[in-house]
Structure formats: structure tokens, C-alpha cells
Design a protein around this nucleic acid. Sequence first.
DNA 1: TATTATTTTGAACGTTGTTCAAAATAATTT
DNA 2: AAATTATTTTGAACAACGTTCAAAATAATA
Lengths: 206, 206
Amino acid sequence: MATTREEKRADLKRRLIEAAEAQILEKGLAGLKAREVTAQAGCALGALYNAFEDLDMLVLHVNSRTLARLGAALQAARRDGADAATELQALARAYVDFACDNQRLWSALFEHRLPDGVTMPNWHRDDHAVLIAEIIAPLGALRPDLDPEALRLRAQTTFAAVHGVVQLSLQGRFVGVPQECLVDEVAALVATMTRGSRPGSDPAGA
Amino acid sequence: MATTREEKRADLKRRLIEAAEAQILEKGLAGLKAREVTAQAGCALGALYNAFEDLDMLVLHVNSRTLARLGAALQAARRDGADAATELQALARAYVDFACDNQRLWSALFEHRLPDGVTMPNWHRDDHAVLIAEIIAPLGALRPDLDPEALRLRAQTTFAAVHGVVQLSLQGRFVGVPQECLVDEVAALVATMTRGSRPGSDPAGA
DNA sequence: TATTATTTTGAACGTTGTTCAAAATAATTT
DNA sequence: AAATTATTTTGAACAACGTTCAAAATAATA
């Protein structure tokens, strides 16, 4: 065995990521503690800082895994060939379902903050692309007037709108819609945005 | 002076809230420290826990002040008599402006989390009503078909949609729209939602 | 097998929020 | 006014946290 060094290193990283994911799943991001993670991973406290720069970077690895799973769920929800409204509804519904079914992991994606002055590594930043990737095509079908740059911006805005409704609701905020209404309200929002995006829906043309 | 006790107590609370607000303004919610707040307020460390249950409750008082100011800004943006689209645009613009001009205080409103199992006191929960209060009237004008309960839900959804765009943008997230585009994208979103809400915009009727 | 390079370890450090007995202060009673 | 009681203020002490680092253990090489 010539690569024992790297193998062990990789295995430790994997165990730490899995332990961290389990901790977040059980107690939420705020319940993630270096001592519990290392205990569950079967290593010493300091070993965490050998494998990762710090606890924040470990969280980013967990979040990247969550983003990959979320991306897969969104891809699986695609309805190629269906009209844009149907496709957007399916994507939004898949997002709501994923957030509800994986609340703590999904929350960690947006609750986590890097310390001031620390910029997010590119390998993790790029993993966020899945959040808007599937929106672009159906939105482009609704809005053939938009150039690629404006279309991408509008996709980001569309995602953020749906995301905002989900987030305030799942946080249980006073201004958030009750969880029982979440699916319906998101569907209503997407329907409204879809209708408002259709060419010919401009008031000047009515 | 018969009420020295209460006066001093109230004065200390005020100084602590102002010091906490100054700290959040300067360094953000994560930069709020019990020792710095009490030092700036001119009292001992333990005095904080005499005046408030804990640091979280002090944050809630700061957040209530922020909500009051935000509520005033939204009320001032009202365009009574104007059509619903204009009114909704004005409200959304006022929300964006407030969030941009008071980023750290505004962020604290939504970043702050109570520990698991601790429920928000009613006096603070109710202060959140200002976030949707002004939306209901213009949205009701657009959607006369909705009963009061559904209208309130739709107002919450509408707020959350705009809020989501603002939050992801100001957090500087990869999927958030760049800050330079925020005003325009929110305006586009509100315009889309307004058009999609107009009676007669239902595809079945086109 | 001996030597060198790397990793693993956990005690120790600094910083946090929070507590609490003692000291200081205000209110009340004599 | 003085003495007594009630309340508040204080800051040292505590537990829990993320992080570091010299020493011990282990792997790679000579």
C-alpha cells in the first residue's frame, strides 16, 4: 500500500463530513460542535484542523453535498417538452419539497455565514449554480425578448422570490405563511409570475 | 425623587439597547458581544442580565426598534389614491431602500435565531406586522376575488418574494442578483406579479 | 533496522454567554 | 437622623466553545 497517507487522509475527511452532516441533521447548524463531530468521526479534536482549515470549511463541504442532492432533485423534476408554466411549477414544487424534507440541511445552506473578510472558495460558490440552472430554459421560453444576461438575472430573481417564501415559512416567522399553506402559496406565486411574464400581458397592450 | 429605582432601571435598559444597536450597526449581529455592550453602556457585565433575560432578548429590543423605523418608512411610501401597481412599486422600493441604507440592522432582523425551544415573546412577534400591513390594501384592489384570509396569505407571500430577492442580493450570495441590479430586478418582479394578478390575466380568459 | 517526514493527539489558550455571592445603594422604619 | 430592610450593581468565576501546538505515534524512506 503505497498511498496509505492519502487514503487515510481522504477517509478522515469523509468521516468528518458525514459526522458533521449527521450533527446538522440532528441539531441544526447551530448544534454543530467541533468536539462532537470529531468524537463521532473517531478522531482527536485537533485532527479536524489537520483535515480542514476550520469548522466553517467543513460546513461548506456539507453544504456542497446538500447542493448536489438539491440539484439532482431539481433535474429530476424537469418536464422537458411541457409548457413553461408547467415546468416552472414542477421546479418550484421540487424546491419546496426538498426544503421541507431536508429542513436542517437546507437551512444550513442559507444560515451559514463566513466570518467578515473571508471570501467563499470558488469550488463551493460554483456549486450554487444548480439553484438557477433549470429555471433559465422555461423562463427564456416565456420571455424571448430578454437577452441572455437579463434572462439569467431574471432567473435569479425568480428563484429568490420562491426561496423567500419558503425560507420565511420554514423559519416559522410571523410574516411567513404557515407551513400547511406553503405548497399552495408557492404555486400561486409561480402562477402569478408566469401569467405576468407572458408576452401580451403588458398593460400597454391590453 | 420617588421613582429613582424605576428611572434608573429604564435608563439602563435604554443605554444597553442603544449600545447594542451601535454595535450591530458597526460590526453586524455576529459582532455583538456582552462585554463590549456593557462597557459602552457604562455598566458592569452582569448588569445586562439584570435588565434583560439574556443577550437574545436585548437583540429583540433592537430588532423591534428597527421594525418600527421600517414600518414608518413603509407608511411614508404609501400612495393613497394611486393605482395598486404604483402603490406596490412604491412599497417595494421603500423596502429595498431601507434594507440597503440600514443593511446591518435590517440583516439582524432575519439573521437572528432564538435557541431551540425558546418561543418569541408576543410583544416582539407582533411588531412584525408592519412588514405586510401596507401591502394588503393595494393587493386587495388587484384581487377583489380573495377573501380576507386568502388576501392576508397572498400579502405574506408577496412580501416574502420581494424580501427573498433583497436578502440573497444583500448577502452577496452567488445566486443573488448584484446589488447594482437590485432596484431594477425588484421593480421587474413587482411589475410581473402585478400584471399576473390583474383580473382577466388568467390564461383561460385569453 | 535506522532515520526522516508526516500525522495524530489532547492539554492548554483565548473568547464567549451566563451566574451568583458579596458590596453598594436605595427605600422604609424606628 | 439613624437603623434596618430591600434591591441593585458588581466583577470574579464557570462552563462551553473554536483553535493551536509541542509532544507522541505512525508512516515513508534510506
